[in-house]
């Protein structure tokens, strides 16, 4: 009798939960109430998202999360990071465990459509590369016929790898691991001849090796890996906000607004800067935050260029060139629609 009642109570409680999940409330509203942005991040990739010696997360992806928090809550530290493996990340976003996924995630058509995600601005243009031991004396990825390749599962990398070897009629053996660390360890232990991931990841991981100079990155870049933040389908307000935080940081760089000069820039007569910093127009309100949202972003996090240089560029151990990630005005691909 008691157990029946218990079961019934449990059943009703479970019902309540499922019904509760169905009633939709905007993510922005939830973030404001919670006072925190929950971001899905990786388990630790230098330059993109990794805790420093004090345990504070640092990286481009983390700075994007902080920029969102600064725009909404005026405090870049009001973020909670949830570390996700490559294979768990989409489930975490789909199920609402995180607000936004910023985790070196490649924008692809199937993810954009059938996985139920919306990609909000490409914060890093990347491509897949290969790392091998220098002692192997390999000059090109086309010499990799018959090699064993270590990679992380649940990534575009796994698919591009299959495509590349198929297109070039080469054989290979794949060994797939859940986390990047396991993949790297297996490569270092000699389980594989080749380690493959996004080129930025290769540079970042090589820094962790005992002898980085024993390894080299092959010249071929075999895929397009536009890394972007993503949100769930069905909440356009939140999608707009995440997207425009990215564009604001690009526009800030283009207009020369930096962390150092943002206060002087508030007095600027340039109408574009006035609209960007909210001294003219009501652009913040359009995405559900106050009009000085970009001032908060730039003051707390910086513009795109500053974020890039600090985390992966010349101001970081990675020393990656801007290249494709430069502004369109400087020969790169980063191009933001205007704020008007």
């Amino acid at each position: 009798m008691k157990s029946i009642l218990k079961a019934a109570a449990f059943g009703i409680a479970a019902l309540g939960l499922t019904v509760g999940a169905a009633s939709a409330q905007g993510v922005l509203q939830k973030v404001k109430e919670r006072g925190q942005v929950i971001c899905g991040t990786g388990l630790g990739i230098a330059g993109f998202g990794m805790p420093d010696e004090k345990g504070v997360w640092k990286g481009i992806d983390i700075d994007y999360c902080r920029a969102i928090a600064a725009a909404i809550l005026n405090d870049p530290m009001k973020v909670k990071t949830v570390s996700l493996t490559a294979k768990d990340r989409f489930t975490a976003l789909q199920s609402g465990e995180i607000d936004v996924l910023i985790r070196t995630t490649t924008w692809t058509m199937s993810r954009d459509t059938s996985l139920g995600l919306n990609f909000a601005g490409i914060n890093y243009y990347d491509g897949q590369g290969f790392m091998v031991r220098k002692s192997m004396n390999i000059k090109s990825a086309l010499e990799l016929n018959g090699a064993s390749v270590c990679t992380q599962q649940g990534t575009t990398t796994e698919l591009n790898l299959a495509d590349y070897f198929r297109a070039n009629k080469m054989k290979y053996e794949v060994v797939a691991f859940v986390t990047n660390d396991e993949t790297i360890k297996a490569y270092e232990a000699g389980r594989c001849d080749v380690f493959t991931t996004d080129a930025s990841g290769l540079f970042a991981e090589r820094l962790k090796f005992a002898k980085p100079d024993d390894h080299m990155i092959l010249p071929e870049i075999i895929s397009k890996e536009p890394l972007a933040a993503s949100v769930r389908h069905g909440d356009d307000q939140w999608f707009d906000l995440v997207k425009w935080v990215h564009y604001a940081m690009l526009n800030a760089e283009e207009l020369g607004v930096t962390q150092a000069n943002v206060d002087q820039m508030l007095k600027s007569d340039n109408p574009e800067i006035k609209r960007l910093l909210g001294t003219e127009g009501k652009f913040g309100e359009m995405i559900g935050v106050s009009n000085d949202w970009v001032v908060r972003i730039v003051k707390n996090v910086g513009n795109y260029g500053e974020v890039f240089e600090r985390n992966v560029g010349m101001g970081s151990p990675l020393k990656i060139e801007r290249g494709k990630n430069n502004l369109w005005t400087k020969g790169g691909l980063q191009y933001a629609p205007p704020i008007r």
């Binding site: 499922t18 999940a21 459509t113 996985l115 139920g116 769930r232 389908h233 069905g234």
Partner: peptide, 17 residues
């Protein structure tokens, strides 16, 4: 039944295959 229909409904709302 409720959990199943709820899941299906939510998946459809989020346009997840």
């Amino acid at each position: 039944y409720e959990a199943a229909t709820n899941a299906i409904e939510n998946l459809r709302a989020a346009k997840i295959a």
